[in-house]
C-alpha cells in the first residue's frame, strides 16, 4: 500500500484524546483515534509525523507541521506536547559526580529537575550546538543551543561533554 503523505489543507484533524486525533482526508477517508508520533523525535520534531492507529499501524504521515493551517497544526502540536516530554534545560545549577553517576541540578521549561546520568558515554550526545541527555531511567532532556546557556551552566557542562 502506498504511504499517504499529508500536506497543507488535505486533512482535517479533530482532537480525540490528549494524544490522539481523528483524521478526515479530502477524499473522504477517515482515520479514527490515531496518535501522532515523530519519526525523528531527537533530530527533527516538526517534520515526518506518523499517524499510528490503536494497533500501531501507520495510516498516514504528515510531511511537515509547518505546511498545515494554523489551527490544524496546533491540534497536532498539542498531541505531541502531551506525548513527548523532553524538558529543555535552561540553567545548570550544580553538578556532582561520583564514580560515573553524574547528578545535574537543573532548571527546565517544565520546572526544576535533578538529572541522574549513570553512563557518561550514553548519557550525553552532542549534535552541533544541541545537547541531548538521557538519564538512568531513560528520561530525555535537551539543551537546544549550548551557546545560549549562561557561562556558569556552560562551564559546569564542559566537565562532561
Amino acid at each position: 500500500m502506498e504511504r499517504i503523505y499529508i500536506d497543507g489543507h488535505m486533512a482535517k484533524f479533530t482532537r480525540k484524546d490528549i494524544t490522539t486525533v481523528d483524521v478526515q482526508l479530502q477524499d473522504g477517508t477517515i482515520f479514527q483515534n490515531v496518535e501522532p508520533r515523530c519519526l525523528f523525535p531527537s533530530s527533527d520534531g516538526r517534520n515526518f509525523i506518523t499517524l499510528l492507529d490503536e494497533n500501531g499501524i501507520e495510516q498516514a504521515v504528515i510531511r511537515s507541521l509547518d505546511t498545515l493551517p494554523a489551527e490544524q497544526r496546533e491540534i497536532i502540536e498539542g498531541c505531541l506536547a502531551e506525548y513527548y516530554l523532553i524538558p529543555r534545560i535552561t540553567k545548570i545549577l550544580n553538578t556532582t559526580e561520583k564514580f560515573g553517576l553524574i547528578t545535574l541540578d537543573t532548571e527546565t521549561d517544565r520546572g526544576p529537575a535533578r538529572i541522574e546520568i549513570r553512563n557518561l558515554l550514553y548519557g550525553f550526545k552532542q549534535v552541533g550546538n544541541r545537547l541531548l541527555l538521557r538519564d538512568g531511567n531513560d528520561n530525555r532532556y535537551e539543551v537546544p543551543d549550548l551557546t545560549k546557556l549562561d557561562a556558569k551552566s556552560r562551564h559546569l557542562l564542559d566537565n562532561f561533554i
Binding site: 490528549i18 513527548y84 516530554l85 523532553i86 524538558p87 531513560d138 528520561n139 530525555r140
Partner: peptide, 17 residues
C-alpha cells in the same frame, strides 16, 4: 508509556478513558 513520561489510564464499561 509516552516519550519520557507515562500515564495511568482507567477505562470504564463504556470504554471511556
Amino acid at each position: 508509556r509516552c516519550y519520557g513520561n507515562a500515564l495511568l489510564i482507567f477505562t470504564d464499561d463504556a470504554d471511556n478513558r
